[in-house]
Write a protein that binds this DNA or RNA. Structure first.
Lengths: 158, 158
DNA sequence: AAATTAGTTCTTTTAATTCAGAACCAAAAG
DNA sequence: CTTTTGGTTCTGAATTAAAAGAACTAATTT
């Protein structure tokens, strides 16, 4: 059982609310938040369960999907049967990119809609074309922004 | 009751699934999708209800939240008691910006976390600093991307 | 090999969303 | 002023999602 200061508990609370609003299931959100604030960065299954006061089954399924989604990594230490779980901060960047690309993929559907629309509604169709152009534009620009960041990082790490 | 071709129905279906996955309630998603594909772009409450074969209450609450969220606009024609509902394509851009900014606002919390973290975990803290720097970077870049788009639009519309 | 550990998987319970149906209300028409 | 139209609001009811609990499994100690 991990001892947490009031501050840390508060942040877990706020951070979880934020992530739940963004569509993440509560237990997953609380695990991720715990892994961000706890003094030890690698926690065992049982430490997580005890600290969050949650059932084994809930922790097990949440951890498994978090690992699957590359949000958490599971580490095994030789000679220690327990697995340790750690926040995959390093993947934040890539996860963000994936998330954004999923959002932008709506453009495929919008293009289908445009193809099917009556030509009678000129103004509306023009607005739709604009949205499509905007999303296409964002797609290109975002790739560039990510590239720029990666290059900048390579230089700094030299 | 709006007549829809098989194609249109199919797209409503696909588009709704997409939006529901992104967290939108089914009725809202189907209304938005209908307003995107239907030949007439301004539909009455009852046309929507009949076409989607849904209850008045569901349509009423869904439309009201869609209007509140600036996804749909409600138009009144003088001498006609009905309200007409239209997809707010024009706001797509602004809604996207708001959505992204909300996502990036997680950085506030990450900074709080960094402030509270033990200094023992150097590597982890460095990774966290990196994420924060990345989000700060994205914030600046995205503003520029939006500006670039807006300028480009102004030029085209001259 | 018995018992414990570290978790998984299946079933049930609980809680939250979503929708429908009916009652209701305000504006307009007859 | 009564009726109709165009919705809204207020219960439930049904569905869905999340969590708990218990039974299970595969290693590991003892």
């Amino acid at each position: 059982m991990i001892e947490l200061k009031a501050e840390q508990l508060e942040i877990i609370q706020k951070m979880s609310v934020f992530q739940v609003r963004a569509g993440m299931p509560p237990t997953e959100a609380r695990i991720l938040s715990l892994l961000l604030v706890s003094d030890r960065t690698e926690l065992t299954f049982d430490e997580i369960r005890e600290t969050l006061n949650t059932s084994k089954s809930a922790v097990s399924t949440a951890l498994n999907t978090l690992v699957l989604r590359n949000k958490v990594e599971s580490i095994t230490i030789p000679g220690d049967r327990k697995r340790y779980f750690k926040h995959q901060l390093k993947n934040w960047n890539a996860n963000a990119k994936d998330g954004l690309e999923k959002l932008l993929s709506v453009n495929q559907l919008l293009k289908e809609i445009l193809a099917v629309r009556t030509s009678e509604t000129e103004d509306f169709n023009q607005d739709l074309k604009n949205v499509i152009a905007f999303i296409d534009f964002m797609q290109v620009e975002l790739v560039q922004v990510f590239d720029k960041w990666n290059k900048q990082q390579q230089i700094e790490n030299k």
